[in-house]
Amino acid sequence: MTLHWATVLAIIGMGLATYLTRVSGLFLMRAVNVRGRFKAALDALPPAILMAVIAPTITAGWAEAIATVITATAAVVRLPLIVVLLTGLASILVLRYAFG
């Protein structure tokens, strides 16, 4: 069990930076009246961010793209989350084997 000073500084810095991003949204919106186009934009942010996070992964190759379509189909027909997850993992394994 060791603690290096540079590592401790990194942990503190990374922790503070992350908490700053998490908490600042609270204060950002306090004085703003949300309606109209701005509300539409804010409502769209959650799915847009989720999509942005995974965009590089799902466009990485044919195996990933096809696995995405299969996973999305499982999600759209409202299978339970864990089933959708396992469908995604199974299809990426099979497809990578097929394309590999």
Binding site: I54, T68, T71, L81, L85
Partner: peptide, 13 residues
């Protein structure tokens, strides 16, 4: 490595 993508796809639905 595809697990996070699969999870987000499910949530996106």
């Amino acid at each position: 490595d595809f697990a996070m993508a699969a999870m987000f796809i499910a949530i996106l639905a």
